[in-house]
Amino acid sequence: MTWVGVMWGVAHVRRGGLWLLDLVLPPRCPGCGAIVGTLNSFCPPCWTSLDFLGHSGCESCGIPLEAIDHGTCAGCLARPPRIARTRAAVAYGDIAGSLAIRLKYGRKIALAKAMARYMLPLVGELPADALLVPVPLNRRRIAVRGFNQSLLIAREIGRKRGVRVAPRIIRRIRPTPPLKGMSFTERQKTVAGAFALAAKADIAGRTIVLVDDVLTTGSTAEACAQTLLRGGAARVELLCWSRVVRNPIFVR
């Protein structure tokens, strides 16, 4: 048998194995667990309950806009953010939040692929030397959790788009308490000085796309962006699975 024949046989067996696996373990909705037709896709009820944000928001921060004549929100016009472009796949809600919580605390790491699938269309045009950089966790949290959920998502996006993932470019040099319940000013003070570039970080002139699971006020991402820009990055963007959009005041 020729080498081509052997490879065809291996591929045939593999396809058969995948078919059998799908028969025994059919794909399920990431939101509710119902059987669906395609891997990492949502069932109709979960799909309709998600608020997909897409590209329709502010050209800079991505927050949904209502009845204005230009593409930039008043906040970004008054104070241009360090992060040049922010995009999130969905608005934070019951199902979107459930995926993030189950990924982080339930160790359902396969959910990272589902999140990445819907984040992927929001990746803009990037230069060849662009880097995907997951928002870092402190070592203690990684030791307890066993992984950085943002890194899992970034790796899937990088694999699909052919963009290099650089998880060690920026690191969290001191632990910070959970930011939930803090005001914007308190969050800023908490994350100030919490990040630093790696000793040999090669980011001069590069576009950096930060990857995270949930965006609330954006204080952590802004602190990361400040560190990256000071280190020579030409542009910093932010890509998230979900974001809070019903905050009374969205502050970067």
Rank of each mutant, 00 (worst) to 15 (best):
211 V>E: 00
193 G>Y: 14
160 K>F: 01
114 A>I: 08
176 T>N: 08
212 D>K: 00
182 M>I: 02
154 A>N: 02
88 A>Y: 05
197 L>E: 15
205 G>Q: 12
134 P>R: 14
99 L>C: 05
132 L>E: 05
208 I>N: 03
197 L>C: 14
163 V>N: 01
150 S>L: 13
181 G>N: 09
87 R>G: 06
201 A>M: 11
100 A>E: 04
141 R>P: 01
89 A>V: 05
104 K>I: 08
100 A>V: 11
132 L>G: 05
184 F>G: 09
90 V>I: 00
172 R>A: 10
134 P>Y: 13
189 K>L: 04
179 L>P: 02
126 L>N: 11
132 L>M: 11
164 R>A: 15
135 V>S: 06
205 G>L: 12
175 P>W: 08
95 I>M: 03
178 P>V: 06
91 A>Y: 09
101 I>T: 15
190 T>R: 09
92 Y>R: 13
179 L>T: 03
213 D>K: 08
195 F>A: 13
190 T>P: 03
84 A>E: 11
118 Y>P: 00
112 A>R: 01
180 K>F: 08
191 V>M: 07
192 A>Q: 15
157 I>T: 00
118 Y>M: 09
213 D>C: 06
139 R>H: 04
98 S>H: 14
189 K>G: 06
113 K>T: 15
137 L>Y: 02
194 A>W: 07
204 A>W: 15
137 L>F: 04
194 A>C: 07
166 A>E: 15
103 L>N: 04
125 E>F: 00
151 L>S: 04
135 V>W: 10
94 D>Y: 06
212 D>Y: 00
116 A>T: 05
157 I>G: 00
